[in-house]
Design a protein around this nucleic acid. Structure first.
Length: 360
DNA sequence: TTTAATGGCGCG
DNA sequence: AAAGCGCGCCATTAAA
């Protein structure tokens, strides 16, 4: 079935890979891969969300309740399970229909607030790079600013493609991506990718220094730290297995940024909950999604929450850059909800409708 | 029936 | 040989 022309890549165990990237490529030449991708997408939504979530509605509360593990993720993040509510779909139109099933009870609204570009801000703080600090101090669109630097272009002359490139570079930096990774991500030559990386580090020398220092420190100490001092130990950073050592190096680059972000959101959770109790509000902090807090807010407390949440979340620590929220607002505003009980009683109906849609 | 490994994919 | 960090959960397959 999978002839040699279709075997674009192998999995670690040696079998032909059929992941999304491979299938997208094959879809250029054959009709089947596209269908398969569509099927997989729908099957994923159905099996993981529409079939499962309604089964997990608690009989007493009428809601789904997740569990958060505090000592699972090595970077200090929380991990959500049974069900995982930190991976509810949002990136596609079909997926967002799942998310729409999550609603507030009558008289309340869902409010969610997430930190804007938090890991890049932390990279600016940790590296102390002047260009990056200035961009954030000036509240610039950071990907646009990066594109302007890398492509030596005025800010307002940055093209969409240039911004897209810069965005991939920025994310790649956080994850310790190589020229090879950048090339495959942007579908360009590896030498071109290397040039972009070199150019980036010339424009942001503080970041280059920081990356270098971090690797070195990891090798000497055997661990890296967040801004608040939580450590990630890297036993394989000096090991003999090249592949694992390189993976450890990437983890060393990423952990201070992902981990500091995790520290900040935990401080924010405490700050927000303390404020709610101090003010004796009926607002509830109901979820955390890594850089985002989700609250259920009675309508008569909406103004107060919208007014105070940014300050509470953004002043848990003073970094070398300002922290900012992407947005704070009531979600699902238009939909008039006439329903008894709360949240997922109604939601399960939505899930059911969706399941039928998928089945047909 | 349960457990473990694998490939794949949802999110930040 | 792999090539981008951190998770949890699904279906499938094989083995206990």
């Amino acid at each position: 079935m999978i002839n040699s022309a279709c075997r674009l890549r192998k999995t670690p165990s040696g079998t032909p890979s059929t992941d999304e990237e491979v299938l997208q490529e094959l879809a250029l030449d054959y009709p089947l891969p596209k269908l398969l991708l569509e099927y997989r997408g729908m099957a994923k939504l159905k099996s993981t969300y529409t079939d499962k979530l309604p089964q997990m509605v608690n009989r007493e509360t009428g809601r789904v309740h997740t569990s958060y593990s505090q000592a699972v993720a090595v970077t200090g993040r929380l991990a959500s399970s049974d069900p995982n509510l930190q991976n509810i779909p949002v990136r596609t139109v079909e997926g967002r229909r799942i998310r729409e099933a999550f609603i507030a009870p009558p008289g309340s609204r869902i409010v969610s607030a997430d930190y804007s570009q938090i890991e890049l801000r932390i990279m600016a703080h940790l590296s102390g790079d002047q260009g990056l600090l200035r961009a954030f101090a000036n509240a610039e669109d950071i990907h646009r600013a990066t594109a302007a630097e890398v492509f030596s272009t005025p800010l307002d002359a940055v093209s969409n493609e240039q911004r897209r490139y810069a965005k991939v570079i920025n994310f790649g930096l956080i994850y310790g991506m190589s020229a090879f990774g950048l090339a495959s991500q942007l579908n360009i030559e590896r030498s071109a990718a290397q040039q972009y990386i070199d150019l980036y580090f010339m424009r942001y020398p503080g970041v280059a220094d920081y990356m270098q220092r971090t690797r070195q420190q990891a090798k000497q100490q055997g661990y890296v730290e967040t801004v608040f001092g939580r450590r990630l130990w890297l036993p394989e950073i000096n090991g003999g297995n090249g592949m694992r050592r390189q993976a450890a190096e990437r983890a060393a680059i990423n952990a201070p940024m992902q981990g500091t972000a995790a520290d900040l959101i935990k401080l924010a959770m405490a700050a927000v909950q303390n404020w709610i109790e101090r003010e004796q509000l009926h607002t509830r902090l109901i979820m955390q999604v890594h850089d985002e807090l989700v609250l259920e807010v009675p309508e008569n407390e909406l103004a107060l929450v919208n007014e105070n949440l940014p300050g509470l979340m953004c002043h848990v620590a003073e970094l070398k850059v300002p922290t900012k929220l992407d947005w704070v607002k009531a979600r699902i505003g238009k939909r008039r909800i006439k329903q008894t009980r709360c949240c997922l009683a109604w939601a399960s109906k939505n899930f059911h409708l969706f399941a039928i849609l998928v089945n047909t």
